[in-house]
Design a protein around this nucleic acid. Structure first.
Lengths: 249, 249
DNA sequence: TTGCTTCCGTGCGTCACCGTACATACAGGG
DNA sequence: CCCTGTATGTACGGTGACGCACGGAAGCAA
C-alpha cells in the first residue's frame, strides 16, 4: 500500500511524467475529457496565494504534483491549517456547492503544476455531469472530516505530536521522505509561534526521527515518527484513501 | 432581522404550532411534499445520542424545535463541539454525500421533534431531486464553515469568550433567552474541564451578563455578552443566515 | 428528617504554550 | 570577503488551562 519507490527530489523532475490529478482520473473517460477540454495547465509557485477567505473564487484547481495548504485565518496574523490538498484532491469546490466564496486561504506549499478551470465553466459542467457531482460530494465530505479531525487535534494534543502528524501527512501527499518546509511555515500551519516549532522539531531531531537544516526536512525514522504523532494521522490518512476508494456508491 | 418575539419556555409549548424545518421549507412544494411523505415525525429526548462516529447512518433528521449538538470525539472522554443544528439544518447529510458513516457524535441538546427519514429512501430521493441536491451542498458547505471557525476559535480564543459565543449561538438556535444547559454539558462542547466552565461562567455572571442556577441559564445582557464573545459568533451566525438566504444560485 | 443525586465552587501544584527579545549560523551575491 | 537576509536556537517571566480533590448547596424522595 505504501510504496515510496524512490526518493523524489524537491524540484520538477519528479513531475516529468504527465500524471493526472487523481480526482479527475476517477471520472469516466468521456466526462473527464469534456472537463479537461475546459482546463488549462498552470504552474504554481511556492508561497503563491490562490484564495483569500471571503474572496470570490474565480478558478478551480486540480493539483498535479503541487501541494496546497488550506489555512483558516483568525484575527491578527494567526492562522491554522485545516486541510491540505495534493494530487488526490481539488480546491474551490465551494464555488459549485455553496456560496462562491473561499472559506480559507489557499497557499502553495510546494511548487508544481495544476489543472485550472474557470469557475463559471466548472459550475456549468458540474450541473450536467452526475459523476462529477458524486466526486465533489465525496471529496467535500473528506475535507470536512479533515477539518474536524484537525480541530480536535489542535485542541487536545501537544505540539510535538501535532508536528509529527503534520510532517507525516506532508510526506504522504508528496510521496517523498524529504521536502522543504521552514519552521516559520509550520508555525502558521499549526497555529503556534515559530519558536514553539523550533523546540518541538529539536526534540524530534534529538530522537533521530527527523533531520533538518534551513528548511530542508528529512524523515529518518518513519515508524518512530508515527509513534511520536497522535492517532489523528491515521484517521486523516485513511480518510484520504477512503475518499478515493469507491467513488461509486 | 433578530426578532425574539416572546420568551419561549423550555418545554413543549413553544412547539405547539406545527412549524416546519426551515431547510425543508426551502424546497419547492412538490419536492417537499414527496420528501415529507417519506418522513415520520419523532420526538427526541435530551441526552439522546443519534449518531456515534464511525457508525453507519440509518436515519436522517430534520429538527423541528429540538437542538442537536455535533461532538467530535477524541480519545479518552474528550469531545469538542464542531457544530450545532437546529430548525435551520439537518443531520446525516453524509449518507448521501460521502461514505454513509457519521463523522461525529450527534446528541440531543434540547428535546423536541424532528422529521426523520430512512437513509436508503433519502438517498433515492436525493438522486432524483435537483432542489434537494442544491440544498444539501449548500448546507454541507455551511457545516464546513462552522467546523473551520470552531477550530480556529478553540485554538486561539480564551475560554470565557468561547463560552459567551456558545451561549449566544444556543440562544439563536433556540430563539430563547433562557435554556437548560449544565456546566458539565458545556465542558464537553468546549472541550475543557467542568471547573473551567464554572470559572468562566462565574466571570460572566459577575459581569451581570448571564445568570444561572442548576443548569437554568438566562442571558441578561445580550449586547454585553456579544462584546465578551469573540468575533466567531458573528461569523458562524451570519454563515447560518447566508446558508439559507439564497438557495437558488 | 435523613439520605441521595445532581450541580456548582474553590484551592493548589503543574504544565504547555505565549510574547518578547536577543543570539547565532548558514547561504548567496556583490 | 563582507554584507544582508533567511533560518534556527536560547532564555525568561507570564498565564490559561489541566488534574485532582474536596466542600457546599439545591432539589427530590422516602
Amino acid at each position: 500500500m505504501h510504496t515510496h519507490p524512490s526518493i523524489f527530489s524537491d524540484d520538477d523532475r519528479a513531475q516529468a511524467r504527465p500524471v493526472l490529478n487523481r480526482l479527475l482520473s476517477g471520472l469516466p473517460d468521456d466526462d473527464r475529457a469534456r472537463l479537461l477540454a475546459l482546463c488549462d495547465t498552470v504552474r504554481l509557485e511556492a508561497g503563491q496565494v490562490l484564495y483569500e477567505p471571503g474572496q470570490t473564487v474565480d478558478h478551480i484547481y486540480f493539483p498535479v504534483g503541487c501541494l496546497i495548504s488550506l489555512l483558516a485565518v483568525a484575527e491578527g496574523r494567526m492562522t491554522l491549517e485545516v486541510g491540505s490538498v495534493g494530487q488526490e484532491g481539488m480546491i474551490g469546490a465551494s464555488v459549485a456547492l455553496g456560496h462562491g466564496q473561499a472559506l480559507v486561504r489557499a497557499v502553495v506549499q510546494r511548487a508544481g503544476r495544476a489543472s485550472r478551470i474557470d469557475a463559471a465553466a466548472f459550475r456549468a459542467e458540474f450541473k450536467r455531469t452526475a459523476s462529477l457531482q458524486r466526486l465533489l460530494y465525496r471529496y467535500t465530505d473528506t475535507l470536512l472530516a479533515q477539518a474536524i479531525q484537525i480541530a480536535v487535534c489542535s485542541r487536545f494534543h501537544v505540539l510535538e505530536a501535532r508536528l509529527a502528524r503534520s510532517l507525516l501527512i506532508t510526506r504522504d501527499r508528496l510521496q517523498s521522505e524529504k521536502f522543504h518546509l521552514t519552521h516559520e511555515f509550520l508555525a502558521h500551519a499549526l497555529g503556534v509561534r515559530r519558536v514553539g516549532v523550533t523546540k518541538a522539531a529539536s526534540a524530534l531531531q534529538n530522537q533521530k526521527l527527523i533531520s533538518y537544516s534551513r528548511g530542508n526536512i528529512e524523515i529518518l525514522d518513519s515508524a518512530g515518527l508515527e509513534a511520536a504523532s497522535c492517532r489523528c494521522y491515521e484517521l486523516v490518512k485513511d480518510d484520504g484513501a477512503l475518499g478515493m476508494a469507491n467513488v461509486f456508491l
